[in-house]
């Protein structure tokens, strides 16, 4: 009698390969470095910022970048652009992580349920369609009309808007994994549905969830800036890169750098996540395993 061992591949066995692949990708590394810089800046913002984000210096408005004491210059109220930018990055990342967390926390279980139990699929897919019918700006408009614009509401609106895609990604993965040999094997051994989902399907869907999270993050960061730019997101005096841009638009021809630096910060965050996410997707894609 031949015994065929069917193992659940999981993520563990591939971990070394994934790291090697990531380290070999110059674009992925660049993205990773950008992210590391941005995250460290965001984390230690209160320690390295020379001034408070809302600290006004009426004697020093419109200082040019490079002025002593104001490395990136000041805005119309003499607020230090460098300090405001650091705190703005912190807020951007907060909103980004909160909305990713919401999308993952709600999208993953619903995606698993929809993919595993066909009976629930119809209901969950209709709910997904309804959510998709509301563009994130409209969700944000609704939330801020009901309970006022705020950081939390911005994060919730951005998170809700991303739940449907997360559900679809996880559902697709679940559909794929539930037909694999090791899941079929577990089924013949009378493993319960819950057990199969948690010990077989979820661990194998994690990589797709992580990749999707790196896709959501830059969308959420740009979304937060957009909402704050329109006055529907973060409210002053809390600094936000979007608010800085909307302020700078008022005196754009007088101090163009006040608009350029916060924009560059957004680009740095998004480029970092996009580059790193692309490399991660390639590294996690098993069809690339044989490629050099």
């Amino acid at each position: 009698m031949t015994v065929v061992e069917i193992r659940n591949p999981g993520l563990g066995s591939a971990r070394g390969r994934i790291w090697r692949s990531l380290l070999r990708s110059p674009l992925g590394l660049t993205g990773g470095v950008m992210l590391a810089i941005v995250m460290v800046l965001g984390l230690i913002a209160p320690l390295i910022a020379p001034y408070g984000p809302a600290e006004v210096h009426f004697d020093a408005p419109f200082q040019a970048p490079g002025t002593i004491g104001y490395i990136l210059g000041t805005d119309d109220l003499g607020r230090d652009i460098f300090s405001r930018m650091l705190f703005g990055i912190q807020v951007s990342l907060q909103v980004g992580f909160l909305s990713v967390l919401l999308a993952v926390a709600v999208g993953t279980p619903l995606g698993l349920l929809a993919g595993y139990w066909r009976g629930l699929d119809g209901i969950i897919s209709r709910l997904t369609d309804v959510t998709l019918a509301f563009p994130f700006l409209i969700i944000a408009v609704g939330l801020s009309a009901i309970s006022g614009p705020s950081l939390t509401n911005a994060a919730i609106a951005l998170g809700i808007a991303q739940i449907p895609t997360m559900i679809r990604v996880v559902r697709g993965e679940t559909l794929r994994i539930r037909e694999t040999d090791f899941v079929l094997g577990a089924k013949t051994m009378d493993a319960s549905g819950v057990r199969i989902i948690f010990s077989h399907i979820l661990p194998n869907a994690v990589s797709a969830i992580i990749v999707q999270a790196t896709v959501i993050m830059p969308v959420a960061v740009i979304g937060e800036a957009l909402l704050s730019f329109l006055g529907l997101g973060i409210q002053p005096p809390t600094p936000s890169l979007g608010i800085m841009l909307s302020d700078a638009q008022q005196y754009i021809s007088r101090a163009p750098t006040a608009a350029i630096f916060p924009g560059l910060a957004i680009v740095l965050i998004c480029l970092g996540f996009n580059l790193f996410g692309d490399a991660l997707r390639d590294a996690l894609d098993p069809t690339n395993a044989s490629r050099k």
Partner: peptide, 22 residues
């Protein structure tokens, strides 16, 4: 394409007004 995805369009709009229009 990567720049198009990473640059917020409202920032691009402000820069376009500043440089191309004004």
């Amino acid at each position: 394409a990567l720049i198009g995805l990473s640059v917020p369009n409202f920032w691009l709009g402000i820069l376009a007004i500043l440089y191309l229009a004004v």
